[in-house]
C-alpha cells in the first residue's frame, strides 16, 4: 500500500427512497472505489434501512437500487459496519439485511462476509480512526 492511501468512511444515516441521500451516497462510494483508497461503509440510524433484504419497488415505481450494494465486494469495498443499537431500536436483526460478501483474492477467492455488527461506541471509535468521514 502506498503512503498516499487514506482511510475513508462513508456513514449512512438516512432511509432510502424517501429522500435521495442513500442513492447519492452509493454513487459516490462506487466512484471513490476508482481511486484505490481504503474505503469502509457504516450504516446507522435510519441508514440501516438502506440494506434491508427483499426490497420490492414494483408497487411504488421507484428504481430499486438495493442490488448494487451486493456489487460492493467487486469494488473491493468489504468493510461494512452495522450499528447494533440502530437495528434494535427499529425491531430489526442482521437477518433482515441483505448478505453482503466479497471474494478474497489472497485466499483462493473464498467468499467472506463484509458485514460487521458493531456497537454505537465501537462505531464512534472507528469513525475517530478515519482520515476522511463522509456522512449523509
Amino acid at each position: 500500500m502506498s503512503e498516499n492511501i487514506k482511510k475513508f468512511m462513508f456513514v449512512n444515516t438516512k432511509a432510502p427512497y424517501g429522500t435521495v441521500y442513500a442513492l447519492e451516497s452509493l454513487e459516490v462510494v462506487l466512484i471513490s472505489a476508482a481511486f484505490d483508497q481504503d474505503v469502509s461503509l457504516a450504516f446507522c440510524d435510519d441508514g440501516v434501512f438502506q440494506i434491508t433484504d427483499n426490497q420490492k419497488t414494483d408497487g411504488s415505481g421507484m428504481k430499486n437500487f438495493s442490488a448494487a450494494y451486493k456489487a460492493l465486494g467487486d469494488y473491493d469495498i468489504n468493510k461494512i459496519y452495522i450499528e447494533k443499537e440502530s437495528l434494535e431500536e427499529r425491531g430489526l436483526t442482521l437477518d433482515n439485511l441483505m448478505k453482503l460478501t466479497y471474494e478474497d483474492e489472497d485466499d483462493d477467492w473464498a467468499e467472506k462476509d463484509s458485514i460487521h455488527l458493531v456497537t454505537r461506541a465501537e462505531l464512534a471509535d472507528l469513525m475517530d480512526k478515519q482520515d476522511v468521514t463522509i456522512s449523509s
Binding site: 432511509a15 427512497y17 434491508t52 420490492k56 408497487g59
Partner: peptide
C-alpha cells in the same frame, strides 16, 4: 401504504 412498505423490504 403497502407498496411503500414492500419498497423498503417489509411485508
Amino acid at each position: 401504504l403497502g407498496s411503500d412498505l414492500n419498497t423498503r423490504g417489509f411485508t
